[in-house]
Design a binder for these strands. Structure first.
Lengths: 207, 207
DNA sequence: CAAGTATAATGACCATAGTCAGTGACTTAA
DNA sequence: TTAAGTCACTGACTATGGTCATTATACTTG
């Protein structure tokens, strides 16, 4: 267990990190990632460049931190969305709805530029990927519940484990989102995801 | 139609471009894209940095050229593999075989490091991705043929167009390969791809 | 052949991400 | 209180992708 009491020095450090984080957030929202330099971030924050690299491994690491925090908040959103379904709803319908919801968030709320940077950071491994791809992520638990429901209701086949199906569903979303990132703007993420899930759900059906 | 006769100056220019291309190819294979600078390429090629930018718009443009040539060679290999199947073979079996073949090439011949570099380049660099992801790529034509055969033989449903199914199959391979790149080494590409295609093929079957 | 033109090639230069040895304010232990 | 030690912080510096005014030289034309 870490010591929760902070001394002045540690408090100052957290404050410095927050100044950098907030300045970057504002600048990125105004000018976009590509048009904001590390120099301009530290100037706005009123700290030195070296200080930036004390608190963040890289510019991308900061961007990923911003986006990851945002995405983590969204899992809560997905969860409340999921809880709004009646208990007798069909699993395949819930699945399609939540997938549609997720895709809407990716395209409309987060947006292409941020998604591209996250997916880039995931593959270059310049960040801790666990909050996004780790099987502990709340998103996996939610999908797990839905799939379990589908099997219990005899909608889905039982040839594969719940975990396997869950992983493949989320992997499919991620894969199509990657495709979106490399084909943008000539690719409609939502319709392609829905088509893909139509095939997948058909393949998962009992019989 | 361009003039096919080259004068000395044009011949020298082509030679210079080739020197840059070959030097880059060797260096990239040895050290990877990220660890080879433009300076080191032009030094090895024995030309100036400015000369590099006469022949290539950017470092990424050069990478793109290399990737284009590489992919073209791969597709030839896949094609000859495809032609080895008897005419009466089932489409789903051919599909599974070629998918297995592709995955073997990705994992064994190309390898994780190079694949990561390519997938990273696709999403990060502003390279011309067309030779790899463009629907004109030979790979799409090959898949198209197989899917068409499956529909003609009444194996597959006709709810979606051949093109749609083709695109979603290749997108699935690419998506799972992306997942492999971000989870390596805790992910068995071949078995996951085969599981995913089992679901997909089941979902594509007639009835 | 001489003068003019086109273009391949040059390398000094710029912008920006990232580094690191050094500084001094703060913490800790006597 | 004070000396020793820690660590957030600094900013000059490096590395590298890319630019551009200039130069060298092959080609063209009169």
């Amino acid at each position: 267990m870490k010591n929760l009491k902070l001394n002045n020095r540690q408090a100052k450090a957290i404050e410095t990190k927050a100044k950098i984080y907030d300045s970057a957030d504002q600048l990125f929202r105004t000018y976009g990632f590509d048009h904001v330099s590390v120099d301009s971030i530290v100037e706005k924050a009123g700290v030195s460049k070296g200080s930036f690299y004390v608190h963040f491994d890289s510019k991308n690491s900061l961007i990923s931190a911003l986006a990851t925090d945002f995405v983590a908040r969204l899992d809560l959103d997905y969860k409340s969305f999921l809880e709004s379904f009646p208990p007798n709803a069909m699993a395949s319908e819930i699945l399609l709805s939540i997938v549609g919801k997720i895709v809407d968030v990716l395209t409309l709320t987060i947006g292409y530029n941020s998604m591209k940077i996250i997916y880039e950071a995931l593959i270059t491994r310049t960040i801790n990927t666990d909050p996004i791809v780790g099987y502990d992520r709340e998103l996996y638990k939610m999908f797990n519940e839905i799939i379990k429901k589908g099997i219990d209701q005899q909608e889905f086949q039982t040839e594969m484990t719940i975990d396997t199906i869950t992983k493949h569903c989320i992997m499919a979303i991620r894969g199509i989102t990657y495709e979106w990132c490399i084909r943008y703007p000539d690719f409609d993420l939502k319709s392609e995801v829905l088509i893909h899930f139509k095939i997948l759900l058909n393949g998962l059906k009992k019989q």
